[in-house]
Each structure stands twice: as C-alpha cells, then as structure tokens.
Amino acid sequence: MNWKVLLVALIVIVPLVWVLASAFGHDPHALPSTLEGRPAATFSLQDLDGREVSLASYEGRPVVLNFWSTWCVPCVREHAVLQAAARAEGPDGAVFLGVLYGDEPARARAWVARAGSAYPTVVDPTGSLIVDYGVGGVPETFFLDRRHVVAAKVTGPLDVETLARHLEAIR
C-alpha cells in the first residue's frame, strides 16, 4: 500500500518539480531574444536634439542598438565602453544608436552634455520600440547585421571583450 502511494506521488511530483525548476531556474531577463535571426523592427524617431533618426537610413551597415537610461547604473558603467567602440568605427563601420528607456529626454540631454556621446540617442515616447524588441529592462543591446537582422541580444552592461566579439560577428 505505502509503496503504491509513494510511486503515485513520485510520478506526479517529479515531473511537476521538473517543470517548475526549468521555469524558475534561470533569470528571466537573461532569456535569449526570440528575435535573433529575424529582421529587426524598423523605426524612425527623433533623437535628443530633435533630429530624425531612421534605421532604414543605415541600410547596408551593421547597427548596435543600445537601450539605456540615466537612472540605470549599469548603463552609466557601460557608457565609456560603447563610446570608445563607436569612435573606433570608420565611416562604413557599425552604426551605434541609443534608445532612451523610461527617462526624461531633458535629463538625458543634460547627462549626455556632461558625459559626451559619439552617437545619437532616440526618444521613444510611446515605448513602441521596447515592445517591438521585447526589451525586459536596461541595459539591453541588440546587434543587427548589415541586413538589419538581429544577430544577438546582450542583457546587462557590455564589457570590451563582449562588445568586440559581437561587433566582429555583425561586420
């Protein structure tokens, strides 16, 4: 009797624990992007200075799309890494673009004026890009190849090696 009860309990509990463990066993924000290998959502938005920035205008060039905000400490930490890499790119090299996430444009403008930026940051007033790219927080960086297909997504701050590796892959 007891071993039968134990067997039934195990048959039910083990798969349940397996499903729950597979769901809770990892950081949900570290999930790989479901968009990898697929065309990136196009956009045409104004940057912090009011200039129109369109993804389509960078046709044929790889793009690094970085979602960031001034209140995000890891974003501030990776800023120097991104700026150095952007400055090192030639005229036909990768294009770097920032997307302001959950922040005031005025605050971002002041922050960029202080820290400097080698590339524009677009303002997404409706949060449309956040949903289009399935962004779960900041910083998140998308690497688009020359055809603007999503090659990779990196969640969290970029370091020099990671950025260089992904840049090499989309060239």
């Binding site: 996430y101 959950g102 409706t126 949060g127 449309s128 956040i130 949903v131 962004v135 779960g136």
Partner: peptide, 11 residues
Amino acid sequence: QAEAAVAMRLR
C-alpha cells in the same frame, strides 16, 4: 505602471 507595461497595454 512601468513604461514597458504601459507600452504593452497600448500595443
């Protein structure tokens, strides 16, 4: 009320 959630509702 997070921006991402509001954007999802709007979408």
